[in-house]
């Protein structure tokens, strides 16, 4: 019997719980179609800004010896308006549009660009750790978080998620503010501030010097955050951080995530990873006799 992998993240229903994380292969509709066909339940776009951004000079991404990646791409993106016209032909793919901005009006403007597009949710990036005035700096400003979410919720009927990370404000405060402002779900976590220095040339490798750590090294931290959020709030969670196997995915479900996002592991294992993780989850559900993902969400909290 084929296992039902569908999941609900608050108001959003997906056929499969594996989602392409923001900033990974995320700038073309053709690529989104390919990743959807490869098994992803949804795709999150690169974080889009009001105007196009070129991002930082290379080097922008490299791996950490022993596992994981450090990146400071600098949120390069074609801008919300260009992007909206590019995905306009979309019929099939559940696209979650990720947005970055500094003030609530930026978000209002960007949401309006997508009025004629098939978008299943918005994800507000309150957590990019390496660009000034957006991302984490916004997530750390609870007043601004409140204003942005209220504005966005007013501007659209589509579900809105907030993506949090570990900044200088306790992320639990950011989540609490977002929940109070009416958010539909929380994505946790983004990359964590990190750097690497080459010892021969004695320089930081990234052109931006400091970037974000992703991949397997951050997984235990992400699991802890998902567990804490689900313990403290009645809010659907999308887990992100170091997921590269089906076992990792199940661990996030047990911690309280209703869906998971896959980022860096696409670089390590390529696009077949969505199918592999879906199959592994199915087999686990069969063994444990679950008929829905929801049956295992948050189970670790009871123990």
């Amino acid at each position: 019997m084929a296992i039902n992998l569908s999941t609900k993240i608050g108001p959003l229903s997906l056929e499969r719980p594996t989602i392409l994380a923001s900033g990974i292969l995320g700038i073309s509709l053709d690529v989104f179609n390919r990743i959807y066909k490869a098994g992803a339940g949804a795709v999150v776009t690169k974080s889009l800004s009001k105007e196009p951004w070129e991002g930082y000079a290379n080097p922008t991404i490299f791996s950490v010896k022993g596992g994981g990646w450090i990146n400071a791409v600098g949120l390069s993106n074609p801008g919300a308006a260009n992007f909206a016209s590019m995905i306009q032909p979309n019929k099939e793919v559940p696209i979650i549009v990720s947005l970055v901005g500094s003030v609530e009006d930026d978000f209002d403007f960007m949401i309006k660009q997508f009025e004629n597009c098939k978008v299943v949710a918005f994800e507000l990036n309150l957590s990019c750790p390496h660009v000034a005035k957006v991302g984490l700096e916004v997530g750390d400003d609870l007043d601004l978080v409140n204003k942005i979410i209220k504005t966005v919720k007013n501007a659209t009927a589509v579900p809105v998620f907030a993506k949090v990370g570990l900044g200088s404000t306790d992320y639990i405060e950011t989540v609490s503010t977002a929940v109070d402002a009416g958010i539909d779900g929380i994505t946790a976590i983004n990359t964590m501030r990190a750097m690497a220095i080459d010892i021969e040339t004695q320089r930081p490798i990234l052109s931006n010097k400091i970037g974000g750590l992703s991949g397997t090294p951050i997984k235990p931290i992400a699991v802890r955050c998902v567990y804490e959020i689900s313990s403290k709030f009645e809010i659907p969670i999308l887990g992100s951080g170091g997921i590269s196997t089906w076992e990792d995915a199940v661990e996030f479900f047990l911690a309280g995530a209703s869906a998971i996002q896959i980022g860096s592991a696409v670089g390590d294992n390529w696009i077949k990873i969505f199918d592999e993780i879906n199959n592994g989850i199915s087999q686990y559900m069969e063994k444990k006799r679950y008929s829905k993902i929801a049956e295992m969400v948050g189970l670790a909290k009871g123990s």
Binding site: G23, L25, D30, V31, I61, N71, V266
Partner: peptide, 20 residues
Amino acid sequence: MKCGIGICGSCCIGEDLVCR
């Protein structure tokens, strides 16, 4: 190209990633 290995998406042409 930025990553060269199929993460960033900057090298896409249609549904293909030139680097990967």
